[in-house]
């Protein structure tokens, strides 16, 4: 674990109203690594992911205590612009959610929000993002067609391209392949392995094999607590806690 620390949470606790969804989570994410968050449904891993780029802000009764650090700076600090945080910490959702726009405009959306109007620059960056998301060859001749005309797997890679277009530093992925078929899933996994060369990636997954295949670090969540975190091969071969082992071997969850 020699890479530079990119994001971290320190004693982070999360409440939905009176319900404590996350309890005292301290976790680090290093540059150019893939960290997988695993655990049974309702264990808080998605909530955790969504609090890293403050997507939970839109839930009225949500409350965060402790710290979430991005390059050592508290994401929830009083002078922090949430919009800036979300530009630096991109997100890919569980279900592909392209805008009902053309493929080009979909990817260009975040760039235009950033204030880029120059047509040439937009084109160059849309193309680069689509290439980075390994979908360019499939869509290069149909950039003006509706993004909704793509298949589910293509839509998800488009969403990844859209997230990459604004050049985030960290990419959060919330079960990005759970709505896809095995072939599309494989493509997304190859893509993630490629992307970690340039980004810090944090991925929530239900699929243990997926976590084993693509991640460097795996964190096991259960009932709102972080049970164990270690190198992926250690977690999957000789976890230090019985609870982790039981989950990984499918004895519960």
């Amino acid at each position: 674990m020699s890479n530079k620390m990119k994001m971290a949470t320190k004693n982070m606790t999360f409440h939905y109203g009176a319900f404590k969804a996350l309890d005292d989570i301290t976790l680090e994410f290093r540059e150019n690594q893939v960290t997988a968050l695993i655990g049974p449904s309702g264990c808080g891993k998605s909530t955790f992911l969504r609090s890293l780029n403050r997507m939970n802000d839109i839930i009225p009764a949500a409350r965060v205590e402790g710290q979430v650090l991005l390059d050592g700076e508290d994401v929830y600090g009083p002078n922090v612009d949430v919009v800036e945080i979300r530009k630096r910490v991109g997100m890919v959702f569980q279900k592909p959610n392209p805008f009902p726009k053309t493929i080009f405009n979909d990817v260009a959306y975040g760039l235009r929000i950033k204030g880029i109007k120059n047509r040439g620059e937009l084109q160059a960056r849309v193309e680069a993002s689509l290439k980075a998301a390994a979908i360019w060859d499939e869509v290069k001749d149909r950039l003006n067609e509706s993004a909704l005309s793509l298949s589910g797997g293509q839509q998800q890679r488009l969403c990844i391209a859209r997230a990459l277009a604004i050049e985030p530093e960290v990419v959060l992925m919330d079960e990005p392949a759970s709505a896809l078929d095995p072939i599309a899933t494989q493509k997304i996994e190859e893509l993630i392995r490629e992307l970690k060369k340039s980004y810090t990636i944090i991925i929530v997954t239900h699929n243990m094999q997926q976590a084993a295949r693509i991640s460097n670090i795996t964190a096991f969540f259960y009932m709102g607590r972080l049970i164990e975190v270690d190198k992926t091969e250690t977690i999957f071969t000789k976890p230090s806690l019985k609870q982790t082992e039981d989950y990984i071997t499918g004895r519960f969850g």
Partner: peptide, 14 residues
Amino acid sequence: RRELREASLALGAT
């Protein structure tokens, strides 16, 4: 869909 709003917010839109 809520997903569309989230997608937009997650891209740093106000």
